[in-house]
Simulated assay, not measured.
Amino acid sequence: MKKLLSPLLALALAAAVAPSVARAETQEVRVAEQFGLVYLPLTVMRDRKLLEKRAAEAGLKDLQVKWSRFSGSAQMTDAILSGSLDFASGAYANFSVLWDKTHGAVKGVTQVGIGPVWLMSVDPRIKSIKDYGPKDRIALPAVKVSTQALILQMQAARDFGLDSYARLDANTVAMGHPDAVAMLSSGKTEVKSHFSAPPYQAMELKNGAHKVLDSYDVFGGPHGSSIVFAPVKFHDANPKTFKAFVQAYNDAIELINTRPAEAAEIYKRTSNDKESIEEIVRQLKDPQVVSFKMEPLNLTKISDFMYATKRLQAKPARWQDVFFPELQDYVKE
Results as ranks from 00 to 15, higher is better:
Arg30Gln: 14
Met1Glu: 14
Ser225Trp: 06
Thr147Trp: 04
Pro198Leu: 01
Asp78His: 10
Tyr249Phe: 15
Ala79Pro: 02
Gly104Ala: 12
Thr189Ala: 13
Asp100Ile: 10
His194Leu: 11
Arg282His: 12
Lys332Cys: 00
Ala174Thr: 14
Asp329Val: 08
Ile256Glu: 06
Ile138Gly: 01
Gly161Val: 12
Met1Ala: 14
Asp131Cys: 07
Lys61Pro: 01
Ile266Met: 09
Tyr216Thr: 09
Val106Thr: 12
Asp159Thr: 11
Ile114Gly: 01
Arg46Tyr: 06
Val143Cys: 02
Phe87Ala: 00
Pro260Val: 05
Val181Phe: 03
Ser128Arg: 12
Asn257Phe: 00
Met183Cys: 14
Asn94Arg: 08
Glu28Asp: 05
Gln148Arg: 05
Tyr267Glu: 05
Tyr330Gln: 07
Asn298Gln: 14
Ala88Asp: 10
Thr241Cys: 05
Ala56Met: 00
His210Lys: 10
Ala16Arg: 09
Asn94Phe: 01
Asp179Cys: 02
Ala209Trp: 05
Met154Asp: 05
Pro124Phe: 02
Ser225Gln: 12
Glu265Thr: 13
Ala157Val: 09
Pro296Cys: 09
Ser291Leu: 07
Val218Tyr: 00
Ala88Pro: 05
Ile138Met: 03
Val122Pro: 04
Leu37Tyr: 07
Glu52Gln: 15
Ala32His: 03
Ser225Gly: 15
Thr102Asp: 03
Lys61Gln: 10
Ser71Tyr: 12
Lys206His: 08
Arg282Leu: 09
Trp319Pro: 00
Asn238Ile: 09
Ala157Leu: 07
Ile227Glu: 01
Val331Ile: 15
Val145Ser: 10
Asn94His: 12
Pro287Thr: 06
Thr172Leu: 02
Met183Trp: 06
Pro41Trp: 08
Arg282Asp: 15
Met154Glu: 06
Phe195Ser: 11
Gln155Asp: 14
Thr300Glu: 14
Ala74Arg: 13
Gly224Asp: 08
Lys127Tyr: 04
Pro124Glu: 10
Lys3Cys: 06
Gly224Pro: 02
Asp286Ala: 08
Asn298Asp: 13
Leu213Pro: 02
Phe219Gln: 03
Gly208Ser: 09
Gln64Asn: 14
Ser225Thr: 10
Pro41Ser: 07
Leu37Asp: 08
Glu57Lys: 14
Ser128Ile: 07
